[in-house]
Design a protein around this nucleic acid. Structure first.
Lengths: 122, 122
DNA sequence: CCGCATCCGGGAGGATACTG
DNA sequence: CAGTATCCTCCCGGATGCGG
């Protein structure tokens, strides 16, 4: 894989990216996608279960981000034809390859908090 | 470090985060910060050199993001008192710890492009 | 060379109410 | 339960022009 500041020119979804990091941030950026993917790590969760874990997200944002992640091929949406409805979200096979990335992001968040903030006791 | 979908409650810069990933995305999110950090990996660059590498960024965004990264303690800004001015940006010691994260992001961007897009020959 | 000031549009993101 | 639909606000990000 590429090292240091090396980058390549890419065309994906009829969009041009001048750096692979730019593409990655376009797919994973924003306020919520990383958090959603983190909670889906190793877990299959229903819509409401996700809502409960990500306490501050609105329904609109959660469903929008889930749709985009599905469109990007990173998560799988499974619908059970029942009443009341049951929908389960999980990482796709390709989404599983995000494991090292998500670990690195989580680790960075923790070490930043340890350095500059406080962990809150509940 | 934390695994899977585990998260902690954090207070940083008088802001509350309900997940360490949320904090990390707040620090590194947006369109440009990841790319800037990627180019500063192993390199010390002047303002204009950064502009040349990130062809599509505007001056306003570049300077804004650089300021925020500096405030977050991830990069160092060194000013040489000369005429004409000379300013160099580099990763701080703490910013260096982003190496595995940036590698994972770059790798993911590349593998996504290989799977869903094309690399463009110049 | 390295910025800052200003104006502007669009979309991210939130709040609330409603539905199959 | 798992979403839609609507309305609204804010600020990201672009474009342009100036200044030490």
């Amino acid at each position: 894989m590429l090292k240091n500041g090396k980058s390549v020119l890419l065309d994906v979804n009829s969009r041009r990216y001048y750096c692979q990091v730019e593409l990655a941030m376009d797919l994973l950026g924003g306020k919520w996608k990383g958090v959603i993917l983190w909670y889906l790590q190793g877990d299959t969760l229903r819509f409401t279960e996700l809502r409960k874990r990500i306490v501050t997200i609105s329904e609109k944002m959660l469903i929008r981000e889930l749709r985009e992640l599905e469109k990007a091929g990173l998560i799988t949406r499974k619908v059970y034809p029942e009443v009341p409805p049951k929908v389960e979200y999980s990482l796709s096979d390709f989404g599983q390859t995000l494991a090292p990335l998500l670990s690195a992001v989580s680790d960075f968040g923790m070490s930043y908090a340890l350095k500059f903030g406080q962990q809150v006791e509940e």
